[in-house]
Amino acid sequence: MASIRTYLQRIITKTCFMHPRVYNSPQIRNSSFHSSKFLVDVEVNTKYETTKNPEEWKYVERLLPVTTVPEPKKLPVYASGWKPQGDDLKDRPYFIARTRNHMMPVYLEIRQRGTARHTIIKKIQGDIWQLEKDLRPFLEDLLKPKNLRLQVNEFAGKICINGDHVNAIKYWLGERNF
């Protein structure tokens, strides 16, 4: 047993001599990442050149992401099918704001382990009951033999509809410039 220990010790001292930096500096184990000290004076043995070229820096700036969502382009026709919100919405009894990404706030929520689908319209301001009254015949027409199940949450400004009608409602809202 003792002979094994001396043998191991000999190996350890040997390897430490092979790496003088390891031998000279004792191992430090900080209690956590946050309490550990900053690394200072890292030895850099490679030759390098520090350059400040505005032409090269343009390529770096191209890679940095923008911090805010930009305003969409103003085009006469949008080939992608997206439409900006109309400007003539002040005289309407209700208003549906766009999201920060300039999209309509109509979402599909899948519940009950994928068996229940609900369409939710958010960001409704003004007379939400009038919106429900306007929307109801359009959706009832789509569902014809079945009856429409729709909930209005006036306080939160949301309307929840049973079933997946996201595209239909987006079309309906787009027709009315929302």
């Binding site: 490679t46 030759k47 390098y48 520090t50 350059t51 090269e56 820096w57």
Partner: peptide
């Protein structure tokens, strides 16, 4: 510092 370091080795 808005600089680019280039190796010369």
């Amino acid at each position: 510092d808005k600089v680019i370091l280039k190796p010369q080795d």
